[in-house]
Simulated assay, not measured.
Amino acid sequence: MLNAFLISLVVVALSEMGDKTQLLALLLAAKFRKPIPILFAIFLATVVNHGVSAVLGQWITTVLSETTLLWLVSLGFIGMAVWMLIPDKLDDESESINRWQKYGVFGATFILFFLAEIGDKTQIATIALAARFDSIGWVTIGTTLGIMLVNLPAVFIGDKLADKLPIALIHKIGAAIFLIMGVGALLQHYFL
């Protein structure tokens, strides 16, 4: 299960670099300037979102045939590779932050981050990873830590660090990992 944890951590950390949720974390940090409640809210929103996603990934393995699941997960990883190459942007999240501000720093961050994760690359990856590795716990822990590793510096350092990171290269590396996982699963099943 160490593989499930490590691969989940690395894949999601790479996916999160430059992702809309990382950009949201930067905006929240700039708006509220209270990193600790922001980080706790991001952590809790991610645990809930990715925990449910991992359960969904496991459930999918019980209702689909092994061949259908193999193709679905493999094509999902290959699709994630392509998606990684499309840059994310925030659609005027400042307005959303202001709308949820009445719930305080923690409440606004939790709500916004949870909603931003729905249908996000990292949520889809969590579903696929849980289906691939048959591990709700290790995948949830790995993906959550991956999110936190990327957002911790984003919240504390803000956009000063974001401008210095080679986001395009990081996305290409993440895309390559997803592609290798998707093609590798197919090759392993049909040729090994």
Rank of each mutant, 00 (worst) to 15 (best):
L69C: 07
L69V: 13
L70V: 03
L70Q: 05
L70S: 04
L70K: 07
W71P: 05
W71D: 10
W71Y: 15
L72D: 02
L72E: 06
L72R: 02
V73A: 14
V73Y: 05
V73P: 08
V73R: 05
V73I: 15
S74M: 06
S74D: 08
S74K: 12
S74L: 11
S74G: 13
L75D: 03
L75Y: 14
L75C: 13
L75E: 09
G76T: 10
G76I: 11
F77N: 05
F77R: 12
F77S: 08
I78C: 01
I78H: 02
I78T: 00
I78N: 03
I78Y: 07
I78L: 13
I78K: 02
G79S: 15
G79P: 02
M80L: 15
M80Q: 06
M80D: 08
A81S: 15
V82E: 07
V82M: 05
V82D: 00
W83A: 14
W83S: 04
W83V: 09
M84C: 13
M84K: 04
M84G: 05
M84W: 04
M84A: 15
L85H: 05
L85P: 05
L85F: 02
L85T: 12
I86L: 10
I86N: 09
I86H: 07
P87Q: 11
P87K: 07
P87M: 09
P87N: 10
P87E: 11
D88P: 03
D88V: 02
D88A: 13
D88E: 13
K89C: 00
K89Y: 14
K89A: 12
K89V: 13
K89E: 14
L90W: 02
L90D: 02
L90R: 09
L90E: 09
L90M: 11
D92K: 14
D92V: 01
D92F: 10
D92I: 04
D92P: 06
D92E: 11
E93H: 14
E93W: 04
E93R: 05
S94V: 06
S94A: 04
S94I: 08
S94N: 13
S94Y: 02
E95D: 12
E95A: 14
E95Y: 09
E95Q: 11
E95L: 11
S96G: 00
S96R: 12
I97H: 14
N98C: 03
N98Q: 15
N98S: 12
R99P: 00
R99E: 09
R99Y: 11
R99W: 07
R99S: 00
W100C: 04
W100H: 07
Q101L: 12
Q101M: 09
Q101N: 09
Q101E: 15
K102M: 04
Y103I: 04
Y103A: 08
Y103H: 14
Y103R: 10
G104H: 09
G104L: 11
G104I: 14
G104W: 14
V105H: 01
V105N: 03
V105Q: 06
F106K: 00
F106I: 06
G107E: 06
G107R: 05
A108W: 10
A108V: 08
A108E: 07
A108L: 08
T109W: 03
T109R: 03
T109P: 01
